[in-house]
Design a protein around this nucleic acid. Structure first.
Lengths: 246, 246
DNA sequence: AAGTGGTCTAGACCACGAC
DNA sequence: TCGTGGTCTAGACCACTTC
């Protein structure tokens, strides 16, 4: 993972023809950008020049600059050269572990409970949501994840049985559909939407909150090989916070 | 940016000694992992072996494998070799643009409005939140961002004047404190927390919603050189959704 | 057309850490 | 100890894009 975080200068104390690795080059260039020595929009020296400046090969400079580009600090174009971005883009990156892992990593006891499961034809709104051509058969599963006995996440999931036929007979009484799907259909593409909503009666009942309580809601759509595999709504009780660092 | 998304095989149709670039190697290895040819936990061939397999140099293989490692698909250790991760970690990455840019990129007209501004000693709860040693002077700014005349984001911000003295006299009537800070103190570290809350009277008034309406809330703490620069709460009206893909 | 980044190579040395 | 990944090099060719 490329780190945006970079600290202290390279100790440019005594003599010794210091060897500049790509990390050093990266830090040095970043430092100059941060010091406004190379302000927003500035065209940076070419790779060849930087290489001679830092006394290293062009390949080393290239790697450094490439990471700075990945980090959203600079922009690069062939023939155009490298420029300091006008507005640095804040990139937030965070990981979405399995609920079970998330709970257990907090030292809490994880419990899973299946609430309902049924196979049916996709209702119209879902056809739209999942971009289904017709009323394909889907499996609708609702379940609850708990941490130390307290409701942690209420899951309302729809699985496209056309995309994952084996899900029709899968047993979700012990293992949740998410964990099952991760093993069955790994490496999918997904889109997540975060938002807020109010707890309706069903939700408040399962999450043990009060009707109307604010709920942090995450919706996730998952594709595999161009076909939408599943659509899920995750409801978190008041107090839950998703944390990301950058 | 490393893409986790990879599609189709390399067309291995006719003859022609295809040249394998690092993207090809990456895709090929990933494909084998996805096909369960190399299941979770499998030790992958070493770089030298892969290089001869794919008919390219070790450096090329190295780059491919490094990206797979960054993507969270495999784990690598010296002497230990590369292994397929047991539980693939879903990494979500998304960008947080300036509100103004976000609004304008939707083709809406952005409007900014300063609601209040005052300099004061940090209240106790804020000292805790911002990890301040004493009741440092802070500037408290509240403002509203609108899109096409409709409330888009209500911002409640505290700036540590010890960290950014110039913020005391900054004029926030035209330019919002966030945009000002991004220019003044770029390249900070931050932590964001997402959650849900209910609109209190102040919020609902500014966002033109009803008291008790669910609000999507983002809290952000920002550091520079180890000192917390600012703490901000961002309130979004119902219907706002933050979208991330992976 | 020409300059700049993008990528590859073959070889080398190093550093970590499993055995 | 010694195999594996981490990194660097010097040189090369290519591909985009601006000029």
């Amino acid at each position: 993972m490329n780190k945006i975080i970079m600290s202290s200068h390279k100790t440019t104390s005594t003599a010794a023809p210091e060897k500049f690795g790509f990390r050093d080059v990266k830090r040095e260039v970043f430092e100059r950008i941060r010091n406004n020595k190379w302000g927003p929009g500035t065209q940076l020296p070419g790779e060849v020049e930087l290489a001679s400046t830092f006394g290293c090969s062009r390949a080393t400079v290239n790697r450094a600059m490439q990471e700075l580009s990945d980090d959203g600090i600079i922009e690069r174009r062939r023939k155009g050269g490298s420029h300091v971005k006008l507005a640095p883009i804040r990139q937030v990156k965070f990981e979405i572990p399995l609920v079970r892992v998330e709970v257990e990593s907090r030292g809490s006891e994880y419990r899973y409970q299946l609430i309902s499961s049924e196979v049916m034809a996709a209702p119209h709104w879902l056809q739209v949501r999942m971009d289904l051509q017709v009323a394909s058969p889907v499996r609708h599963v609702r379940c609850l994840h708990s941490a130390d006995g307290a409701p942690y996440q209420y899951e309302d999931r729809w699985i496209n049985l056309f995309a994952v036929p084996r899900a029709e007979d899968a047993n979700f009484s012990k293992i949740g559909p998410n964990e099952w799907l991760v093993n069955e259909v790994p490496y999918t593409n997904a889109e997540v939407r975060f938002g807020a909503t109010n707890a309706d009666h069903t939700i408040s009942q399962h999450l043990k909150t009060i009707d109307g309580d604010p709920i942090f809601l995450a919706e996730r759509s998952t594709w595999h090989a161009g076909v939408q595999v599943t659509f899920v709504r995750l409801y978190f009780p008041r107090g839950y916070q998703m944390i990301a660092k950058y």
